[in-house]
Amino acid sequence: MMRDHQVVFCAVASAFAAVAALWDIRTRRIPNLLCATAFAAGLLLHFGLDGWQGMLTALAAGMLAGGVFLLFFIAGGMGGGDVKIVAGIAALAGFSQLPYFLIFTGIAGGVMAVMLIVRHGVFRSTFKNLTVLMGHHARRGLTPHKELNVENKSTLRLPYGVAIAAGALFTLYLNGSRS
């Protein structure tokens, strides 16, 4: 696969991710149409530039990333739109970029979480809730905690679409700097 293709894949992924992030900030939701369009665009773009093999590896990237994030959704720690958009962005970025995208997204999400904790001054309660969640999931597996989950509007929540966009942008930057 040509290096130029990687930059194109990551640029388009970053554009979709930026739209998702803005939508997530404004509405706290990521539309299904945007997620489906990103996924389909990833498959078509990879097919157009790299043929069937490119399309199949884009499909694998989307399914793998979506599967990883699906675990967080099942456990009650993430919304469904985040899972769907990460699958679409991964399909766009491609399989070879998947480790970078997932690592950068995780780092961005962690940094955002720390910033949210600092901003709201909730160090002690966050640590307590983290230990409660670890105990809960150790005993009950991936079942959501009855109170500490993404559906509870009274808990601190962050628009994870922003972390996904940051992961895509850092992946694009990495590809651009290697060209």
Rank of each mutant, 00 (worst) to 15 (best):
M2W: 10
R3M: 12
D4V: 10
H5T: 03
Q6W: 10
V8F: 09
C10S: 15
C10K: 03
A11T: 15
A13L: 09
S14K: 06
F16S: 04
A18Q: 02
A20R: 05
D24P: 00
D24V: 01
I25E: 00
R26L: 11
T27A: 04
T27H: 13
R28V: 00
R28M: 13
R28T: 06
I30P: 04
N32K: 03
L34G: 06
C35R: 00
A36M: 13
A36S: 08
A36Y: 11
A38T: 03
F39L: 14
F39R: 00
A40G: 08
G42T: 10
L43T: 03
L43Y: 07
L43I: 10
L43Q: 05
H46A: 00
G48P: 07
L49Q: 11
D50G: 13
G51K: 11
W52Q: 12
W52M: 11
Q53C: 09
Q53H: 12
Q53T: 12
M55T: 03
L56Q: 12
T57D: 11
T57F: 15
A58M: 06
A60Y: 05
A61W: 02
G62F: 01
M63P: 01
L64T: 13
G67V: 06
F69I: 10
L70W: 14
L70I: 04
L70T: 13
I74T: 14
G79R: 03
G79C: 01
G80T: 08
G81T: 07
D82C: 01
D82Q: 07
K84E: 01
V86E: 02
G88Q: 02
L92W: 05
L92H: 09
A93V: 03
G94N: 05
S96E: 15
Q97C: 10
Q97L: 12
Y100P: 03
Y100D: 13
F101P: 05
F101W: 06
I103N: 06
I103Y: 13
T105D: 05
T105G: 08
T105L: 06
T105E: 01
G106A: 14
G106R: 08
I107Q: 06
A108L: 04
G109W: 04
G109H: 02
G110K: 04
M112Q: 14
A113R: 02
V114Q: 01
M115L: 15
L116V: 13
L116S: 12
V118A: 14
V118E: 01
V118F: 01
V122G: 00
R124F: 07
R124Q: 10
S125C: 04
T126P: 08
F127R: 10
F127L: 15
N129R: 15
L130G: 14
L130Y: 12
T131D: 02
V132R: 11
V132N: 09
G135M: 11
G135A: 11
H137D: 02
H137V: 05
A138T: 13
R139P: 07
R139M: 12
L142P: 08
T143L: 14
T143F: 05
K146H: 15
K146Q: 03
K153D: 14
L156F: 13
R157A: 09
L158A: 12
P159W: 00
A163H: 10
A163C: 07
A163F: 06
A163Q: 04
I164L: 07
A165D: 02
A166P: 02
A168F: 11
A168L: 10
A168R: 08
L172N: 05
L172V: 02
Y173S: 11
L174V: 06
L174Y: 14
N175K: 10
G176C: 15
G176N: 04
S179G: 15
S179Q: 13
